[in-house]
Design a protein around this nucleic acid. Structure first.
Length: 630
RNA sequence: GGCGGUGUAGCUCAGUGGUAGAGCACGCGGCUCAUAACCGCGGGGUCAAGGGUUCGAUACCCUUCGCCGCCA
């Protein structure tokens, strides 16, 4: 029996809602999964959430929730998003599951039993935000050396355990030197360079902060999150728990991830861990590119993070297409416009060009003209092809398949679209509208049947990228069965078509006529929206630390005619009370009150959130408290 | 700094030892079944710069410049 095709995405951090980046990976897995299913393979598609990181607990507490409640909520959020995006995963693992704890602990115990874990003393720095340890010589100023981060580091000087990563430097090379085990190929070379640069043993424990997995036999320590995270791929398929299940699935056929976690983790640490346990290595690791937005890096602080749900709403808004096809359109755009291994730049301008060019003008319009002509000329008949394009189809199938095997999604789409070009060209050359006027109905049938057949086959090939639209196209053409690769052959079903009528319908991808100029429409507000915010100048009259929260200040602010207000602000790390008292600041006076640490905060102080610091905003000249800001 | 990649039409990119291609955009023509869609034709590029190998290089080699990636 064929091995089940096992596909994984990384497990996603739950300290943020799903965005276009995580959706990209998960959509890719879905595309591959649908393709493999279409080829008749059994597929196991795994995704999930990474919940044991210290920063997850921090994020939860910042929101005043227990870590577990918070994780429950966020895991649901991910599932909901994937469901909405028509992503059909087979399993969703959460690293806080009990079975995962057990597998991780047993895994480490076995690792120790094999002599690959030893006790030692670790001295260095740790960045809680990046979940990364840094050596002494990498840190000059006590701040995270990652230029994007630059947050204060934790000093670490502790007893703990190390994984003998250095023992696998040589053993990893045969795997890395194999063709098409790590893609794209330029990333594979990076991995090799990295490994040849010398592997050091990895410190795999940290002091316990009652969130995370306790280290076996030394329970006051906690397992380093990356070790825990990687083992999810084993837990989810029954490792050490269900041997039969495990042997039917292991090893993963494709493991997808962003380029950031390929080199160090998935192509080095992970295979080393597997080699240590003498487990077969994944067949293919793929590190895809990142998305920028109009040339800029996506980041929360820039506020330009693309939410897939927003993007879909924009597609609907500007095209008027149905929601399910808008989802298809987003998916299509992401994989059509950029090679999967490369970085892409997201813009609504590009999206529109891609949508109109391929989906509206080419695919949608072809469907529309064929259904119209069949209805008009042939009373809805779906005739068999009168011309033979089997050679062309055959070569397209070949290149499509080769592309899909290497996850070269954009070129797979391109080959499918050559069939649509052929169909449009064929219609132009045979001109069924003229044949109809000449009364040559058989010639009309031959012509339309040919174009329909080309469309039918390309709809099958496009199914992984356009699941809803593909089914709709096939259904309008009289084929209701689930798309299958076996049916992507020239001239099938000519008998079955008799008596079945074409279903005319409204265009599935109506053109986007409007030019979308703004990258994120939701960000645009009117002057009236802005006027809703009552901004005032306020003078800070008192300031002290909130009890039990050393990052928070509780302050009294004089707003002149509006009286005095109490506000809570998280700026204690950046200002001393004496620096603040007497200062004029800008205050949001009509903000709904909020309870923070048991205290009511009635408004907020404006401050600049700059890397590594927070700076409060003050009027440039002395003005009376209560003055309006606009 | 080390290693690697890349620089080709307005844009995105493909490509080969014999003096360049696709898609989009633009212009013209055709068609009228169709979502002003479709089909055809066209403009436009000292193929980053300089040097070398060669009968001949955009392609191979060297150097320079620009951009990008990796180096726990």
């Amino acid at each position: 029996m064929d091995k089940v095709f096992y596909i994984t995405t990384p497990i996603y951090y739950v300290n943020d809602v799903p965005h276009i980046g995580s959706a990209y990976t998960t959509l890719a897995a879905d595309i591959l999964s649908r393709y493999m299913k279409m080829r008749g393979r059994k597929v196991f598609f795994l995704t999930g959430t990474d919940e044991n990181a210290p920063k997850v607990a921090e994020a939860a507490r910042a929101k005043g929730e227990s870590p577990l409640t918070y994780c429950d909520r966020m895991a649901e959020e991910f599932k909901k998003t994937w469901d909405y995006l028509d992503i059909q995963y087979d399993a969703f693992i959460r690293t806080t599951e009990k079975r995962h704890f057990e597998v991780v602990r047993q895994f480490l115990q076995k690792l120790k039993g094999r002599g690959y874990i030893y006790e030692g003393y670790y001295k260095g720095w740790y960045c809680i935000y990046d979940e990364t340890y840094f050596r002494e010589e990498e840190v000059q100023d006590g701040l995270c050396p990652n230029p994007e981060c630059r947050r204060p580091l934790q000093r670490v000087q502790e007893r703990g355990y190390f994984f003998k990563l250095s023992a696998f430097q040589e053993a990893l090379l045969p795997f890395l030197n194999e063709d098409k085990r790590v893609l794209p190929d330029f990333r594979r070379r990076e991995v090799i360079n990295f490994v040849l640069g010398g592997l050091r043993d990895l410190y795999i424990t940290r002091q316990r902060n009652d969130w995370g997995i306790p280290f076996p036999d030394d329970e006051q320590l906690q397992v380093y999150v990356w070790v825990d995270a990687l083992i999810n791929y084993l837990t989810a398929v029954g490792y050490l728990q269900d041997d039969e299940l495990f042997s039917s699935l292991w090893p993963p056929d494709v493991q997808l991830m962003g380029k950031d976690i390929l080199v160090r983790f998935h192509a080095t640490l992970w295979p080393a861990m597997l080699l240590a346990m003498e487990l077969p290595l994944p067949r293919l690791l793929f590190g895809h590119g990142f998305w920028t937005v109009q040339g800029e890096k996506m980041s929360k602080s820039k506020g330009n993070v693309v939410n897939p749900l927003t993007a879909i709403r924009e597609i609907i808004r500007f095209s008027g297409c149905e929601e399910s096809y808008a989802k298809d359109a987003l998916r299509f755009y992401l994989f059509r416009s950029t090679p999967f291994g490369a970085d892409g730049d997201f813009s609504y301008e590009n999206l529109r060009a891609c949508y109109n060019g391929d989906l509206a003008n080419n695919l949608g319009n072809l469907l529309n003209r064929l259904t119209t002509m069949s209805t008009k000329y042939l009373d809805g008949e779906i005739p068999p092809p009168g011309y033979d394009y089997s050679t062309e189809v055959h070569s397209v199938l070949k290149s499509y398949q080769e592309a899909m095997e290497e996850l070269a999604f954009h070129s797979a789409i391109a080959s499918a679209f050559t069939l649509l070009d052929l169909a449009n060209k064929h219609l132009d050359e045979t001109a069924p509208w003229r044949l109809y006027k000449e009364g040559n109905i058989q010639a009309v049938r031959n012509s339309l049947g040919t174009a329909i057949e080309l469309l039918r086959i390309s709809a099958i090939l496009l199914y992984p990228f356009l699941p809803s639209a593909s089914r709709e196209i096939l259904s309008r053409l009289g084929f209701s069965s689930a798309p299958s690769f076996k049916e992507a052959n020239w001239g099938l079903f000519t008998e079955e078509r008799k008596g079945i009528k074409i279903k005319a319908g409204t265009p599935i991808f109506p053109r986007m006529e409007e030019v979308i100029k703004i990258s994120n429409q939701e960000k645009e507000i009117t002057i009236d929206d802005f006027a809703k915010v009552d901004l005032r100048v306020g003078k800070i009259v008192s300031c002290k630390v909130v009890e039990g929260a050393e990052k928070l200040y509780q302050m009294e602010v004089d707003l002149g005619e509006l009286g005095k207000r109490r506000t809570i602000a998280g700026i204690a790390q950046y200002y001393t009370p004496s620096e603040l008292i007497g200062k004029n600041i800008i205050f949001v006076a009509n903000l709904a009150p909020a309870k923070i640490k048991g205290l009511i905060s009635e408004g907020m102080i404006l401050a600049v959130d700059a890397p590594g610091q927070v700076v409060i905003v003050t009027p440039e000249k002395e003005v009376p408290p209560g003055s309006k800001v606009r």
